[in-house]
Simulated scan of single mutants.
Amino acid sequence: MSDTTARALALLNLLQTHRHWPGTELASRLGVTERTVRRDVDRLRELGYRVESTPGSAGGYRLEAGSAVPPLLLTDDEAVTMAIGLRVAATQQLVGGAEVTLTALAKLEQVLPSALRQRVNALAAAVQPPRIGAGPVVSPVVIGEIALATRDHERLRLRYVDGQGEESVRRVEPHALAPAGRKWFLLCWDLDREDWRTFRVDRITSVEHTRVLFARRELSAQEIEERVLIAASWSPQKIETDAVMELPLAEMQERFGPWGQGATAEGPDRTRWPFGGADWREAMYGLLWIPAGVEYTTSFPEPHRAELREAVERLLRALDAPTPASSADS
């Protein structure tokens, strides 16, 4: 780094620490003349910093907000604090802010020196933020590493523990991180299975960077959202049941798309499809996916089966009843 650049950065650091600096004080602290300070202020202005100056014996310089965000100069402690804050924020359910949080986290983590990254990891592990809802704990270290690789299109090697407690090593191309309900999910291309997979981030125990880049596969925002919602629906539910429909497996999978995950053939012309929900209303929604005209049976459990039957019978009576007159017709 040249003396001029180092001095300009030192000047920027001083301007960021106080609202107003007399020109003489800045010159004294930097060990230069006031004329040199004026030249360094001009360099900062060229970089996008809005440095205002006031003339006279009481005049000086101050850093003001501009029309765009210029590069920031952070001390080590400030950088660590910001990285921890972003990691904690990324593990919460931020309405509409998840993508922005992860983007900011990836940018900051990319430039953190190794020593500062170690400090962030150690401190973040000790921070226990108040959680929103009762979702599983997500490692801020893991989510930070995945955010970096997702942005940089870098292949990862993950250690993953499934719902049955079985650990496996997965080689993936990370595509998107997204929250659903009270959980975080990683949508990625599984290199060994040659297909899309969605993993719960709280079940990823370690992340290994491979430094191998990949060409990003195209998925629309709607497809990403749908696959994450499907993965969320596959988490253990209060009601877990299935339906056997009069439809060959291949035809069922074609009609259901990604929502047909877990379906198995029950002979050449029938398919068993598992579904569920937090209550009988959510589980009933799964039955509405079965195409019109396709007969099926279901193992809907009691007492939810009786609750569903009562609701359906009441709905049928409402549909068969005359349309109620509106108040305007009275």
Results as ranks from 00 to 15, higher is better:
T150K: 01
A27R: 07
F214M: 07
Q128L: 02
R39E: 08
D195K: 07
H304G: 12
R272C: 09
G262Q: 07
R217W: 02
R182K: 07
P70W: 08
P291S: 02
L86T: 01
A221E: 11
A6D: 14
F256I: 05
E295W: 12
G276P: 03
W289Y: 15
R317Y: 06
L102E: 04
G59I: 09
G31R: 09
S2C: 12
I290T: 06
V88D: 03
L47H: 14
R117H: 08
K107V: 08
D202V: 07
R305N: 11
G97L: 04
P236F: 00
V37I: 10
D77C: 03
L148E: 09
L73Q: 05
R62V: 08
L14W: 11
F214Y: 15
E64D: 11
E225T: 15
R35Y: 08
T298W: 06
E52M: 15
L177M: 14
E313A: 14
E251R: 09
R19S: 11
G165K: 14
P70D: 11
P129C: 03
S327M: 13
A10S: 14
H304Q: 14
L229R: 15
L94N: 00
K183W: 11
R117A: 10
S28T: 15
S235F: 01
G133S: 07
R87Q: 14
E99Q: 09
H175N: 13
H20A: 08
V212E: 14
L287S: 09
G262R: 06
R171Y: 11
A265T: 09
W259Q: 10
T298F: 05
E34A: 08
L9V: 09
M1A: 12
G262P: 03
G31N: 12
L229M: 10
V207T: 02
D192G: 00
A176F: 12
E145V: 02
S139V: 07
T241N: 05
Q16I: 14
S67W: 01
L187G: 03
Y49H: 15
L288F: 15
D3Q: 12
E99M: 02
G23R: 13
L102Y: 01
V172M: 05
L74I: 01
L47Q: 12
T103Y: 09
M284Y: 11
L308P: 08
A58S: 12
E78F: 00
R197D: 03
V95N: 02
